[in-house]
Design a protein around this nucleic acid. Sequence first.
RNA 1: GCGGGUGUAGCUCAGCUGGAUAGAGUACCUGGCUACGAACCAGGUGGUCAGGGGUUCGAAUCCCUUCACCCGCACCA
Length: 582
Amino acid sequence: MKAHIQQLLEQAIVCLIKQQIIPADTQPRINIDRTKDKSHGDYANNLALMLAKPAKQNPRHLAELIVANIPESTLVIKMEIAGPGFINFFINPNFLEKQIDSAYSNERLNVQIEANPQTIVIDYSSPNLAKEMHVGHLRSSIIGDAVARTLEFQGNKVIRQNHVGDWGTQFGMLLAYMEELRAKGEPIENNLANLEIFYRAAKARFDESEDFATRARNLVVELQSGNEECLKLWSQFNETSLSHCQETYQRLGVSLTRADVRGESSYNDQLAVIVEDLDKQGLLQQSQGAKCVFLDNFKNKEGEPLPVIIQKKDGGFLYATSDLAAMRYRQNELNADRILYFVDARQGLHFQQVFEVARSAGFVNDKTSLEHMPFGTVMGEDGRPFKTRSGSVAKLADLLTEAEMRAYELVKEKNKEMSEQELRHIASVVGISSVKYADLSKNRTSDYTFSFDSMLSFEGNTAPYLLYAYTRVVSIFNKAGIEMGGVTAALSLTEEKEIDLANKLIQFDEIIKQVAKQGMPHFLCSYLFELAGLFSSFYEACPILIAETETQKQSRLKLAGLTAKTLKQGLSLLGINTLERM
RNA sequence: GCGGGUGUAGCUCAGCUGGAUAGAGUACCUGGCUACGAACCAGGUGGUCAGGGGUUCGAAUCCCUUCACCCGCACCA
């Protein structure tokens, strides 16, 4: 609809240019807004206000001229000039009904398939395998996954990349500890059952024993030089850690699989090549023993150009190096059009730098877009950044268990007769979805206050509210004895609440586009919450099964059916399951 | 010091990149279940959009400035 109005306005501009009312070189950005107030029609536009100055016209008068030059359209029944010079468009209600009818019988709910699908690489979750996943991994995993699903739904080719931290100095420490356990005859498997404890034990040995620390450092070197025994231990460790991750993904409903794992270690053989390439291109400089690329746009504390260190003075590589290798791989092997990074905002500078290096070295084409999708820091309830090293770290797995337990209590209280199995299932969906929704519904760029209580409150703008709306529709269709998609009669909108709901329903497509473009699932959350809210009002005000006429009943069933389908589809894009009853 | 971010109702947060009277949730108050599911709905109280300038028809949004807090800034990731 927006596109249609835009076309109308563009044609009006052409006419006005011909008439020399506005200058020939005007290329205004046409912005169609949805109105907040119904008295302003359905859509509004400020073109007259923007062009008033270049056209040397009174804005209201110019608005009249624009309206006079807009071609006939069956979709627009009325245009009004309001305020300082807004043009308000009133849409034919008939159109709304047609849209709903068509979305209802469409698998994709009328969400357009991308005309030019892209290959989009998404780097997300990427936990460090040395430790178990904790709350800090929640945002990247959940937000990245929601965006991946959304882009996929649009018809893009999405390639998930779980860039796990499976390499680096801390592995020396872990391997040394594994060795020690083995020497003592203790089964390593048992100890790896809890990675958090394992890591702490290894760290404690590292801190208390100089011999151990030395051994750990030596093991890093041996690992990197391909010592077989080391690699065996290393891969045993990683296997265990990865299976922990998969377990968590499974519980969380994150769509990452083992096939999406491409850890830092997989770029090992490319690191030296990257250095060589940069050197050949004359981008590399020696500084204080390290090999660096200097970028003029970035300054350090002393106001001197800031280096991106590619290779340490001891010959070791850094995460900038493997990020560059990964970028080149994603460009050349995966043929990415877009590469998205769902990574903590604190790494913003790092990404600016490596993006620039990658471009100037030609690792990435100019056409390929590199996008850091930052998210805010996880804060404790005291308002301070959530620290992971200070003793009582909330493991992600424990958090999920807590959520399920709280949900279980609530579900049981509301459903005294329900079987244990069903209670468990519902509690699991309610608990997990609450945690996810609490995170997804916030603008990802701002800091995130981690709070059990707000996450697991099941009232208001929460996942259960949306799930509840869905189950109400299911219940109605059960009672009516027909399938949710089985309404055949045409829509007939008369009541205000019906029209409000219908208007919201046809916006689904716009919202999907927005989420896909900006990588921000909270737009979808807000939309679904508003949709569920409008449905609840409609539900209260407009009896469905006991409607006055059969026509009205069928029409309302259809509206409810499309609401449920939209909720289900929307939640599914967020990685949240629906329930038939709760 | 330089760069980035944040500051909106008691609390948690939206505000669609400059639009019409700044919105939700929560908390608090009032009303609604022998009722298609009350995890709900209808309504109310609550604001110097951190402060101050500027740009213009119009600013929470753009520019400048002050304040407060957070985060980066050479071999960790």
